[in-house]
Design a protein around this nucleic acid. Structure first.
Length: 799
RNA sequence: GGCCGAGUGGCGGAAUUGGUAUACGCGCUAGACUCAAAAUCUGGUGCCCUCUGGGCUUAUGGGUUCGAGUCCCAUCUCGGCUACCA
């Protein structure tokens, strides 16, 4: 009796895979030389940030999904590319460096080595010759090249913007370093500091990013999240003249120009540049105080306290519709970053304006007729206009067009589209990031570092803390800072790029990771991209939107022959602790995948369990008991091949064998991994009942391989079989005798056995059904109607 | 507040096009093997009853249909994302 020893089997196969470079993808040239029929398949998971803690069970789930699919397509003899990489720039490594003095570069290398070792221990079918690392100069040279392309086209630009600032540590803080409005390190209340920063003009692609969402084979919730994030709204831009000053106008944006007759005051964002020009002497002190406080306010405070605040500027504007004088206020509920940073307030039909009017006792004029059953004080729906002069009685939708036309004719407004999405702020005053390839001349003008001087190497420093001027620790590399461009002495940019920039193009680097002449080889990208299957459980908007943005940009430049980077997106759920709570070190409920493997289960059990645990796209709770069931299943598979008790004629399980092959194949196409494993379990149960033929075992091992590749390889070796994915015979799916269900009035009353060849004879089926004793009991006289459905194997009698 | 998703046994879940609800696994339980235990194997396992049979059951209440977990309407509960976007 041989015993299933996963540790030994896995060691053996991992060594073989490593030595033979078993998962190396063919380049486009090699594939073409092999013949026209070879289809390509490019799969990837969202590459990990290699933390010091090593792989966690969430990684394992994510990678196991991609691995199962990669192996499935490999067994179908496609040319599969399944690469791997590391997203290594980022705050954790920098924080660790500040704390320990160990350079991020050194720590990152260690973490990568550990991740690689662990990924290999899990037996993933990775093409290790294509490994990439975003903090490797060979990689970030091309991240910088991408930046320069955006800079060249005017899509990378500088703008003043507020940044978190800790007045005690004298340092900028990343969002993650601000905890409830306080510095993560010293606990001081943080401030906002205005600094010049780099942005990518993603808004230039807002419409295309929005329009093409619908055509994507992505989960609905991600598509909706992206649409909401882009947040397109149509409306109008309207100029309000400031009273007693013919030269001053305030522009507002509104989606409801039809309510303009109800605009009883204007509100400006505290950052609005017009405030200083219009405020009266009397109001000046109060207004400036308010603005200063509001700008300092953290977003957290704004969220906590939704009570409206504000201050009157002392100035008035003229409502162009009514000709009436209306007061101009300032309030932080108006955001400078959206629309014009100013609104016309219509308190009768906007809840926020209503609250504000209530608090400061401002007039409310209804201009849209409320439906009779409407109970809310503030009606924001559609209806006929009232109190609106010549527009009275017009439906609000029509009035919008009419009023915009009138505004255009009068030269004081026009229709306009705005987006919630802002341009992407990419400056980070951090050390451990990709240097921005820019230098400044004496006058502070930015210049591109010439392409032949790339990469701008990330310099080593002694102290990783940002300096007190708000610059990153790169400013401490004094020699590095100096650069000569076209004979002119310049100073390098010390901001680094947001990590999302590094990950916005890595999928394309995979096709030619060693290419020294381009970010991606044009031939290879043409063959491999776009990515066929991309799998991850995070970044619903940020990363997945940025990749789409860069794809469109580089497509416009002619570098990419496609406009959407990811054909099919699989968005996997999290694995939680057995109590259903998130795993975290502090709670002490973390399951370490390596512990699970080493406890004797092995990688095959772990991987299969994580795919069996539930639908891949839903969260699941770890169960230390249930994983034992998967181990028992694999053990049964092992025994069928290595300790057979009896072999049978290969016809015995012909239906089950073909059904299982079909089921597992179809489940792969719809990513139903949990049900595919269940189908394999059913098949094994069947083989235990009926005995197994060699043909049964070969099919079992082949179908099992994407889930438990080591064990399946061992089985296939014993069976002297290749691993080519099995096909099935549609005709063999039907048994000789079929069970047909008989219902009376939709209630199950009997089951009859019908020879397969008689199944399609509905008259015969009906007769057989009516002849059943238990059916007769419920049918008195002639049935009203009989529905006989051979395909559903069902007869329903209406009595 | 807005948007999205989900509610099925003791538990994780299955039912893919409206057609046998509860596949598969866990747990529990009985038996075989064993001096015994573990492991393994075989069977049972939604609930209720007047138990060779029958009734009920997919969060709740209605509806459409020969037939509803699935479609429609209303209500409740939970989870996620987002958050003063004019």
């Amino acid at each position: 009796m041989k015993k299933y020893d996963p540790i030994k089997i896995e060691e053996k196969w991992q060594k073989i895979w490593d030595e033979t470079e078993a998962f190396k993808a063919k380049t486009s040239k090699e594939a073409k030389a092999d013949g026209e029929n070879v289809q390509k398949m490019f799969l990837a998971e969202m590459f990990p940030y290699p933390s010091g803690a090593g792989l966690h069970v969430g990684h394992v789930r994510n990678f196991s999904i991609v691995d199962a699919m990669a192996r499935f397509y490999t067994q179908q003899r496609l040319n599969v590319l399944r690469p791997f990489g590391y997203d290594t720039f980022g705050l954790p490594a920098e924080n660790y460096a500040i704390k320990t003095g160990i350079s991020p570069e050194v720590a990152t290398k260690q973490n990568i080595d550990n991740f690689r070792k662990q990924a290999k221990r899990l037996g993933f079918a990775i093409d290790w010759s294509r490994e990439i690392n975003t903090s490797d100069p060979k990689y970030y040279k091309w991240t910088q090249w991408c930046f320069l392309k955006l800079f060249e086209k005017g899509l990378a630009y500088q703008k003043e913007s507020y940044q978190w600032w800790c007045p005690v540590d004298q340092t900028v803080l990343a969002n993650e370093q601000v905890e409830n409005g306080h510095c993560w390190r010293c606990g001081t209340e943080v401030e906002k500091k205005k600094m010049k920063q780099w942005f990518f003009k993603i808004t230039a692609y807002a419409d295309e990013l929005l329009d093409e969402v619908d055509s994507l084979d992505w989960p609905e919730k991600i598509k909706v999240a992206q649409k909401n994030w882009i947040g397109r709204s149509e409306g109008a831009e309207i100029s309000f003249k400031v009273d007693n000053d013919d030269n001053q106008f305030i522009k507002v944006f509104t989606t409801r120009p039809d309510t303009i007759f109800g605009a009883t005051f204007l509100v400006l964002a505290p950052e609005h540049p017009m405030i200083a020009k219009i405020m009266t002497e009397n109001a000046k002190e109060k207004v400036l105080d308010y603005c200063k406080e509001a700008i300092k306010k953290s977003e957290i405070e704004r969220q906590e306290n939704k009570e409206k605040t504000g201050v009157f500027t002392g100035a008035y504007a003229i409502n162009p519709a009514t000709g009436k004088q209306i007061p101009i206020w300032v309030s932080d509920y108006v955001l400078m970053g959206y629309g014009e940073g100013a609104i016309m307030a219509v308190p009768a039909h906007d809840e926020r304006d209503f609250d504000f009017a209530n608090k400061f006792d401002l007039p409310v004029i209804e201009v849209i007729e409320k439906p009779e059953d409407e109970t809310e004080k503030c009606y924001h729906g559609e209806g006929k206009l009232i109190n609106s002069d010549r527009f009275n009685g017009v439906e609000s939708a029509d009035a919008r067009d009419g009023i915009i036309k009138w505004l255009e004719d009068a030269g004081i407004g026009k229709s306009r589209v705005t987006y919630k999405m802002r341009d992407w702020l990419i400056s980070r005053q951090r050390y451990w990031g990709c240097p921005i390839p820019i230098a400044y001349d004496k006058d502070g003008n930015p210049h591109a570092i010439p392409e032949d001087q790339l990469p701008v190497i990330h310099p080593e420093v002694e102290d990783y803390k940002p300096d007190s001027t708000g610059r990153s620790a790169l400013a401490k590399a004094k020699d590095w800072l100096k650069v000569t461009i076209d004979g002119e002495e310049m100073t390098r940019e010390t901001d680094t790029l947001d990590g999302y920039a590094c990950s916005s193009w890595y999928l394309w680097r995979y096709v030619s990771p060693d290419c020294e002449t381009a970010a991606w080889d044009p031939e290879e990208i043409k063959y491999w991209a776009p990515t066929d299957v991309y799998c991850g459980g995070d970044h619903a908007v940020a990363h997945l939107l940025y990749v789409r943005f860069w794809c469109k940009f580089f497509a416009d430049l002619g570098y990419l022959p496609f406009r959407e980077p990811v054909k099919r997106l699989l968005y996997n759920g999290y694995i939680n602790a057995p109590d259903g709570k998130k795993m975290s070190k502090s709670k002490g409920n973390v399951i370490d995948p390596l512990d699970v493997i080493n406890s004797g289960y092995g990688a095959d059990t772990l991987r299969t369990y994580e795919l069996f645990i539930g639908p891949y796209n839903e969260d699941a709770a770890w169960s230390t008991k249930a994983i034992g069931g998967v181990y028992r299943f694999l053990n049964r598979c092992y025994n069928l091949v290595f300790n057979p008790e009896n072999t049978v004629d290969e016809k015995v399980n012909i239906v089950a064998r073909n059904k299982t092959a079909k089921k597992v194949t179809e489940d792969f196409h719809r990513a139903g991994f949990n049900t595919a494993v269940a189908a394999l379990m059913e098949f094994v149960n069947e083989l235990y009942k009926n005995g197994a033929s060699e043909a049964d075992l070969v099919v079992l091992a082949k179908l099992l391989k994407p889930f438990a590749p080591h064990l399946a390889s061992e089985m296939l070796e014993e069976l002297k079989s290749d691993d080519e994915w099995p096909t099935w015979d549609e005709k063999a799916l039907v048994a000789d005798v079929v069970e047909v269900v008989v219902q009376v009035n939709g209630k199950l009353r009997a089951k009859i056995q019908v020879p397969a060849e008689e199944l399609n004879d509905t008259d015969k089926l009906t007769a057989l059904a009516l002849a059943e004793e238990n059916v007769k009991k419920y049918v008195e006289g002639e049935p009203k109607r009989v529905i006989a459905l051979p395909k559903a194997k069902l007869v329903n009698i209406v009595a």
